[in-house]
Design a protein around this nucleic acid. Structure first.
Lengths: 200, 200
DNA sequence: TATAAATACTAAACACTGTTTATTTTCTAA
DNA sequence: TTAGAAAATAAACAGTGTTTAGTATTTATA
């Protein structure tokens, strides 16, 4: 009775092979510039074979995207141990931007791209997105209890901080930082995240 | 000898027609999803005709890009008369977000859309964008002279403020504010712009 | 073990895309 | 009126994502 299991294992391995070939190519050349034939060549199978494992190119992306979202939430939880609420909020922002820099293709579908938005909203993965927003509001409330964000509504503070980190992330991901000296971009981003503390 | 002038006028009108057809289609469906044949159909000419007026699809994109920036810069100059540097900076941010709300299709092309990769190298296209960024830095320096932005590098302050307003604008334009109560969105945006004053 | 059925895979085709070409139509200047 | 220039087009080309029909390979049954 091990045949069925072996087959499932092989199927899973093939999906993994497709996924990691796609991830490599996507991050090297961008989603739009990678063809299904490129992916097929990389795994040394014919194009049609990919369609036995994935419905279409978008589903490959979504599978990668799901992994990214899981990683996103994990990264945000990792900083929750930080005691000082201000340090924690800065680390939260750093984790957010770091995710966008590390996985620009993921960040794109999650927060920027237009067409998959409706699909994403339907899927369970947007709930994970809301969970991270709730996490942000929780961290803000705890900062409030420590005396920060005086006379500010938590909704406005949360929206402001989110807009801020999303602004950084999306300018980076969509390559709109061309007027900045490229060797100092990381530095400037870090400086901005600390600058924001002044508003707390 | 008015024939030559009429011809030039007609040539210019044709470019305008292509441009406004493209802008409508791009903002409805996104650059990638609009075909040259779609644009040709809209202006009721054959595909090949477009190539008599524009080298390629990317050149259409950047012509729109530049028009958007020209309008954008004009809007930003309109608030330069405000005396108080802080009021002026807030108004600057409001003008920025207002532009995005009023002309979402231009804002999209200017700051969000995936840009055709080839043209990125040619930085001549970005000059218009740098002008508005310089205006922001000017306003920040004048706020500094009035005692604000203590111990902050102007590059970091400018990048921070830009990221902040771009975050607001792009979340709005790409419809990622659905978790906020829609009847209070304008209020929250306004609240955020004033919240940012705390960092000045 | 031999063979029918199911599975895995592939080559070729299809309907698209941006762009280029050869050709036709329209306009201009003599 | 007509040769030549300019403008517009239809058709083609090389590429894309995806589907099809058919070929190997593997599995289950006799």
């Amino acid at each position: 009775m091990g045949i069925k299991e072996r087959k499932e294992r092989q199927k899973s391995e093939m999906r993994d092979a497709i996924l990691s070939a796609a991830l490599t190519l996507f991050s090297e050349q961008g989603y739009e510039n990678v063809t299904m034939r490129n992916i097929a060549d990389k795994i040394e199978y014919s194009v049609g074979t990919i369609y036995l494992y994935y419905k279409d190119k978008g589903e490959i992306f979504f599978d990668l995207h799901n992994r990214g979202f899981a990683e996103f939430y994990k990264k945000q939880l990792e900083i929750q141990h930080i005691k000082d609420p201000i340090d924690r909020l800065v680390a939260h922002g750093e984790a957010y931007v770091q995710f966008a820099i590390e996985y620009p293709e993921y960040y794109d579908v999650m927060f920027i791209s237009r067409t998959p938005a409706k699909e994403i909203q339907k899927s369970a993965h947007w709930e994970e997105g809301e969970r991270t927003y709730d996490l942000l509001k929780l961290n803000i409330r705890q900062a409030m209890e420590a005396g920060y964000f005086k006379d500010i509504h938590v909704e406005i503070a949360a929206f402001s901080l989110w807009s801020f980190v999303h602004g950084i992330a999306s300018l980076y991901v969509r390559d709109r930082l061309r007027m900045l000296p490229s060797e100092h971009i990381k530095e400037i981003i870090s400086g901005a995240l600390h600058f924001m503390k002044r508003a707390y």
